[in-house]
Every structure is written in structure tokens, then in C-alpha cells.
Computed example of a mutant assay.
Amino acid sequence: MEIKVALARAAHQEFTIEHATLEDPRSNEVLIKIVGVGLCHTDLVARDQFIPIPLPAVLGHEGAGIVEKVGDAVTKVKPGDRVVLSFASCGVCGKCHDHLPAYCHEFPVRNFLGTRPDGTSGVGVGGQAVSAHFFGQSSFASHALAFERNVVKVADSDLPLELLGPLGCGLQTGAGAVMNSFACPAGSSIVIFGGGPVGLAAVMGAKIRDCGTIILVEPVEARRQLGLELGAHHVISPAECNVAEAIRAIVPAGVDFALESSGLEAVVATALSVLGSRGLLGLVGVPPKPESAVSVNLASLITFGHRIHGIIEGDSDPDIFIPELISHIKAGRFPIQKLIKTYALDEINHAVEEQLRGNCIKAVLIP
């Protein structure tokens, strides 16, 4: 079938809106009409070749839509079902069996190579196959092919489906880091570095977990104010003070948990410095360079029992965690609409600029 896509043709260049062809779904695949897709930083680092997916490529990995057709082996969904798309996993390795599919042994192959696991692509432009199947979906498009394992049925018909795509990656990463990876107990203290969609989802997750002290470190005033509205007890501007001293003024003994979403070495170092005894630092931010590194004081690590945890996709099993987040949305505890601004898919380059300038927290593209 013919579809419309936003195509990444070259690193650091604008996306182009083009016509493409999409194959029918294979036995374990699902054809989805996309109604909304989140724009994530990971899409941009893939376009710019930090993730070396061959270009040209159809990216996009926070899709939501309506099932139009399913392969003959698919039993999880049927045509007409509303779904959120998340990352791909094999379903048979030990980590998948442990409900940790983000650590699937085949995660890079199934999410980053630009092909199906067998090396084929279901998307063509100008008669030539292009990279697709990004995170098992490539949803910067009017229609996408996903695998049965990475579609999650949305049972509630009263929710705006076009806004739910970011649950598949960014929002489940931030909320999941707090609710799954940390499993913050009630009354615990947490500092969140970065008030983008991942950080603000973490703020909402910390409120859901009833954390006693929630601190948000964020340079943009409007995002700090939104952080307070979403549940933060304290906000800190890194341009106005020594961040570590400001955090210690609030929690002198150091925090129980710190979540770092920027990937910047200096911020990671600050996050380590404010941990309390047996404090846990979670890292979700993509670093600016593959060789990015920080120095760790081993004596401090051993003396205070500090822990560092790299977190992928909020340690979530999408089939379990996305419905949980949807229940929080329905109850008003996870108001994602406060983060989202919508754009037409044709406006993708404008949306990229708006997001990079901080004029919008989470862009969602409507095909």
C-alpha cells in the first residue's frame, strides 16, 4: 500500500515528507493506521547517527493508532483495536521471560538496525528499500508495521488515543524509572535532573509513589513551574545557585534516589555527589558522545554504599506498565496532556525546532 512518511535522508538535515510503499503484514506483524506519534530525542540522535541506523530511514517510535490488518499468527489484537506501540523484543530469552524485555538479548537487532531480524525492510521509497522497523514500528508515517509483541491494546475508548503514543517510550521511561526501577517507598526523597518529558513523567511517578521530598532541577522557568504543578515540592534553577549545595540544604543527609535525564557528565557528577547513604542514581539520559564518561570516587561509593543503575525503558514490561499508566491518566494522577503540543506530521521540522528551543515539552505529530 502507499503511505506518507517523514524520511530522514541525511544526518543533521531536515526530514522530508515523501510517499512510500508498505508491505502487507507478515504472520506475526500488525498493520496500524497511525493517529499520533511522539517526537523523541532518540529519533533525532538516530537521524544524526549517534545510533548508526542506515539512512535514509523512517524513524518514529512512540506511535499510537488503529489496527487495520493482522498476520495469520496474531491473536493479541484484531482490526479495529486501539493500540499503543512500544519497543520490540524477542519474547523467548531469559530477560523477556523475567518481564524485563528492555534488556532482551536481541534488543539492538530488533530496534536499531533498520530492518526486521531477518534483514528485510517492509518500507520502500522510489522502488528501493529503506531503513524502517525502528523500535519495531517506524511510526513517523501514516501507517506502520509492528510486531505482535510490541503492540499494547488500549481498552478505554474515551481517552484521546493520539496523545497516548509517548507512553511507549519517553513517558514510560521517566515514570518507570521511579515506579519500577527505584520502586520508591512512600516518604523517600528523590531529585530529578531535567524537566523534559522524561523528567516530568518521573515527577508524576514520584507523586504517585508518595515520595516525601521531590526535587526538580531544571533551567527553564516554565518547566519548573509545571514541575511544581505536577507534584514537585522544590525546584532548583542550575543557573542561579550551586545545585549540590541547594539540594543538601533541602535534604542535608543526601537523597535516597537521583534520576539523571540529560546525559551530561557534569550533571551526572552532581547527581552522584548528592546521594545519601545507600543512595541510588538512575541514568536514563543519552550522553552527547559515545565516549562520554565520569569519574567515580570509589572510596565514597564503598563507604556510603552508593549505587548506579543504567535504566532502559523504565524497566517496564509494556503489556503490564502501559495499562497501569493509562489507569493513572484516567484517575487524573498522570496528566500527560499538560506536557503535549500537537503538530501535523508535515510540520515535523518545525516541531523539532520548537522542542529544541524549549517552546514545547513533548511534541506529538498527527499524520
Score class of each variant (00 low, 15 high):
E23L: 13
P25G: 11
P25R: 01
N28C: 10
E29F: 12
L31R: 12
L31M: 13
K33E: 15
I34G: 00
I34D: 02
V35C: 13
G36H: 09
V37F: 06
G38D: 06
G38M: 09
C40M: 05
C40R: 01
H41R: 14
H41K: 12
D43G: 14
D43Q: 05
L44T: 10
L44D: 08
A46H: 03
R47N: 13
Q49I: 06
I51Y: 08
I51P: 04
P52W: 13
P52T: 12
L55R: 08
L55S: 11
V58S: 06
V58G: 00
L59M: 06
L59P: 05
G60I: 04
G60V: 02
H61K: 07
G65M: 03
I66N: 02
I66H: 08
I66C: 11
I66R: 09
V67A: 09
K69W: 11
G71T: 04
G71I: 12
A73T: 12
K76C: 01
V77E: 07
V77C: 05
V77G: 04
P79K: 11
G80E: 12
G80V: 06
G80D: 12
D81H: 08
R82L: 03
V83W: 02
V83M: 09
V84N: 02
S86N: 02
A88V: 03
S89V: 01
S89A: 04
V92Q: 04
C93D: 05
G94D: 11
K95R: 14
C96V: 02
D98V: 09
P101C: 06
A102S: 14
C104G: 04
E106T: 10
F107R: 05
F107P: 00
F107D: 01
P108A: 13
V109C: 05
T115K: 08
T115C: 11
R116S: 13
R116C: 08
P117D: 13
P117I: 13
